[in-house]
Nucleic acid binder design. Structure first.
Lengths: 147, 147
DNA sequence: CTAAGACCCGTACTATGGTACGGAGTCAAG
DNA sequence: CTTGACTCCGTACCATAGTACGGGTCTTAG
């Protein structure tokens, strides 16, 4: 089964049909072949593509950045060196995100663990346990957004 | 030095002055005391708070979600049990994000590593190496967004 | 004392990431 | 061969997350 119409792709990927058209306009979803009627016919792999876009978004990439990730794999005419350089840059971004998330995770775990689970919040040691950790311990002041 | 005005806080936290007012309106930044003139006077910790908001955003939390994270620590009148439950839920969200990022990281690393660094993209094994991994190996079909 | 610069506020504008609408053509089951 | 569901397209609308504007007040260095 290698020809889905918009409705099926949308359903399988868990997005709205309009979203598919939107992604197509934005250059994230390649224009699929059409049948004579004008109906789009998507290949199977489109499902994975859409899901990838969604996941990347959930971890903080804008659609523009997602497109950059995707074009790493298909942009012809770019030298391999260049693609490699950009991929390595992206890996750095991703590692930074992971590091930040781990700090948030630690703070939240501490919070959930310290709390005894009874009594009003004002008595709960949660407040103090969170402070300090939640601010991500400063550390990296300044050199963000050097993308 | 425990009384910053908007300008200094903005500068130190790396955001626009307008953004501070915006966060205040949205309930992310607590209203600071004012001097008689009406000027805001922020405590030192506001810098960390703003930076936390920014980092949380970068890893995919909306301002609404960031507020939820923050109110975990200050909302009085909520039972500790409830706060704990919500914190545990957030930890789950965070772990999912980390897992997704790690998949993206693996795909990108593989990509950067496989590529020899010379020649046009069409000859580069990058394209194939990326496929399969980039789709985040499906796996978790369906039960997302059950927040 | 005064003028540049910071701050106040409300309001308007912008970009991003979709969603919804509605009229027209298409498909497929009965 | 019709009818209801699906698709097409352009355009309009929406929420989120800011950013800019502009007239007025406050502060502070000279």
């Amino acid at each position: 089964m290698d020809n889905m119409k918009t409705g099926e792709l949308a359903r399988r990927a868990g997005v709205n049909v309009e979203t598919l058209r939107f992604y197509e306009r934005k250059g994230l979803l390649p224009e699929p072949p059409r049948r004579e009627s004008g109906y789009r016919e998507y290949p199977e792999e489109s499902v994975r593509l859409i899901r990838f876009i969604k996941r990347a978004q959930e971890v903080g990439f804008s659609l523009g950045e997602v497109r950059e990730l995707l074009t790493l794999r298909v942009e012809p005419g770019t030298s391999c060196t260049e693609v490699r350089r950009r991929a390595e840059q992206k890996v750095e971004d991703v590692r930074q995100k992971i590091a930040d998330l781990k700090k948030i995770e630690r703070a939240l775990t501490k919070l959930a663990g310290t709390c005894t689970g009874r009594g009003p919040v004002s008595d709960c040691p949660i407040l103090e346990s969170l402070d300090g950790e939640l601010a991500l311990s400063e550390g990296s002041t300044g050199r963000r957004k050097a993308t």
